[in-house]
Simulated scan of single mutants.
Amino acid sequence: MSERKVFCEECRNDVTFTINEKKMEGTIKGEKYSYIGKEAHCVDCGSEIYVAEVNDFNLKALYDAYREKNNIVSLEVILAIPEKYAIGKRPLSLLLGWGEQTFSRYCDGDMPTKQYSETLQKLYEVPAYYAEILENNKGNLKTIASYEKSKRAVNKLLGRTESTKTKIDLVIEYLLSQCEDITPLALQKALYYIQGFYYAFYKTFLFSEECEAWVHGPVYRDIYFRYRDYRFDPIEGNDEFDDSVFTSNEKAILDSVIKNICCYSGKVLVGFTHSETPWLSTRGELSPTTVSDRTIEKELIGTYFSAVKEKYNMINTNDIKGYAQKMFEQM
Results as ranks from 00 to 15, higher is better:
163 S>G: 09
295 T>R: 05
184 P>G: 05
245 V>F: 00
331 M>S: 14
31 E>G: 02
244 S>K: 15
258 I>V: 15
262 C>R: 02
29 K>F: 06
301 I>F: 06
146 S>A: 10
275 S>V: 13
6 V>P: 01
238 N>I: 12
64 D>I: 08
90 R>S: 08
63 Y>H: 15
41 H>E: 04
80 A>E: 11
46 G>F: 07
16 T>F: 06
62 L>W: 07
63 Y>P: 02
225 F>M: 08
91 P>Y: 03
124 Y>L: 04
293 D>G: 03
228 R>D: 14
233 D>Y: 08
40 A>W: 01
220 Y>K: 07
303 T>W: 00
225 F>W: 14
76 E>W: 07
236 E>Q: 14
317 T>E: 13
284 G>N: 08
147 Y>V: 09
114 K>A: 11
265 S>H: 08
248 S>Y: 05
221 R>N: 11
330 Q>G: 00
209 E>I: 03
17 F>M: 06
53 E>R: 11
50 Y>Q: 13
96 L>D: 01
119 T>Q: 11
233 D>F: 08
311 K>F: 06
286 L>S: 14
58 N>I: 04
219 V>A: 09
245 V>G: 01
6 V>R: 13
329 E>N: 12
118 E>Y: 00
84 K>F: 06
146 S>E: 10
299 E>V: 11
185 L>M: 12
139 G>N: 01
273 T>I: 04
75 L>W: 02
128 A>T: 10
304 Y>E: 00
34 S>F: 00
49 I>W: 02
10 E>A: 08
291 V>N: 08
272 F>M: 11
265 S>R: 07
221 R>P: 01
144 I>L: 14
211 C>E: 03
263 C>S: 13
12 R>G: 02
319 D>G: 02
99 G>V: 10
70 N>F: 06
29 K>E: 12
215 V>D: 04
291 V>Q: 13
231 R>Q: 10
22 K>H: 05
162 E>N: 09
96 L>Y: 00
253 I>Q: 09
244 S>C: 03
86 A>G: 02
65 A>P: 03
115 Q>V: 12
312 Y>Q: 13
3 E>Q: 12
150 S>A: 13
314 M>A: 05
22 K>A: 02
86 A>T: 12
122 K>N: 08
121 Q>Y: 05
307 A>R: 14
179 C>W: 03
27 T>S: 12
316 N>G: 14
151 K>I: 10
126 V>I: 11
171 V>L: 11
272 F>L: 13
114 K>P: 02
162 E>G: 07
319 D>Q: 12
313 N>Y: 05
184 P>Q: 07
15 V>K: 15
39 E>T: 04
120 L>A: 11
29 K>Q: 03
273 T>N: 02
33 Y>C: 01
176 L>S: 04
267 K>N: 11
282 T>Y: 01
157 L>E: 11
281 S>Q: 13
186 A>E: 04
193 Y>M: 05
81 I>T: 11
127 P>I: 07
58 N>C: 01
88 G>Q: 04
138 K>T: 10
129 Y>I: 15
206 L>Q: 08
